[in-house]
Amino acid sequence: MDSANAIAFKVNDVLKAQSIARSVGYSLDNYLYIKSWITSQGYLYQDIQMVKSLMYIILLLVVAVACFNIVSTLVMAVNEKRGDIAILKTMGAGKWTLRFIFIVQGAFNGFVGCLLGAMMGIYIALNLTELITHLEALLGHKFLSGDIYFIDFLPSQINYNQVIIITLLAFVMSVLATIYPAWRASNIKPAQELGYSH
């Protein structure tokens, strides 16, 4: 008697392949060995998910370092321009005016940096395979060999919602990083900086 000893089927949602395979197996009367791509190649997916989680942490650290650079740059600008700030205060510039000047300067730097970073990130993600191919040709070493791995390229998918959220968060952090230098600039005492006595 002819009978099937295996069945194979395609699913629309690849992430639900294991649960769908189980439900199909349980609906049949015969004993079956259930196997999906998650069973055979799931380790790769788990590695990608782990790398994705680590990338969020790395990205946060990169943004934090960039914010620290903004703080240090503005603090140095305050130290270099103490005399000019004192003159502005003697000419009638208020504390909030000085704070606004430094916040705007830091926000502009942050805006340009976030915009350029987002554009470069999108470009690299869209052309990742080509860039890796050029790098392999330049170094003479193949990072992903088709003989070892089942893919010989780096797939990438851009989630524009996440790009927008990360860019906006980076910009907000860069603006917040300007508050301390701006506060420090506004508290400069003109009498001390210009050599006058009380």
Rank of each mutant, 00 (worst) to 15 (best):
M1L: 15
L194A: 04
A93K: 08
I7Y: 08
I188Q: 03
Q41L: 12
F102A: 06
R82Y: 06
V65Y: 05
A93F: 12
I70M: 02
A6S: 10
V71D: 09
A182M: 05
H134R: 15
P181C: 03
K35H: 13
V63K: 00
I179M: 06
N127T: 08
L98N: 06
V24R: 02
K35T: 15
K35L: 14
G121L: 00
Q41K: 12
L139D: 07
L60C: 12
I158P: 06
L138N: 08
L74S: 01
Y45W: 08
K35R: 14
M55R: 09
P190K: 01
P155Q: 02
N79Q: 11
N5I: 12
L98K: 01
I34Q: 10
Q105N: 07
R82W: 05
S72D: 10
I34F: 09
S40A: 14
H141K: 12
I34L: 10
D152P: 00
L169Y: 04
Y26I: 13
N161Q: 15
Q49I: 13
I103F: 02
K52H: 07
L139P: 07
I70P: 03
I57W: 09
M120Y: 09
K95W: 11
A8P: 05
D29G: 13
V71S: 13
L135V: 13
W183P: 07
I70D: 00
N79F: 12
I151T: 09
S72W: 10
R82C: 02
R22F: 11
A17P: 03
I38Q: 13
S3M: 15
T129P: 05
I165G: 01
V172L: 09
P190F: 02
Q46L: 11
F143H: 02
Q157I: 15
S19T: 13
I87L: 14
V24W: 07
A185F: 01
Q46W: 09
R82D: 06
C67P: 08
Y43F: 14
E136V: 04
R22C: 11
N69P: 03
L194D: 03
A107G: 06
F102P: 05
L28Y: 03
E80I: 04
N161T: 15
M1D: 14
Q162V: 12
G83E: 08
T178C: 03
I57C: 07
L131Q: 06
I103L: 11
N69T: 07
K10C: 10
F171A: 01
V172H: 04
S156F: 08
R99E: 09
L126W: 09
Y149F: 09
S27P: 04
S145L: 00
V65I: 15
L115R: 03
G113S: 08
Y160S: 10
S174K: 00
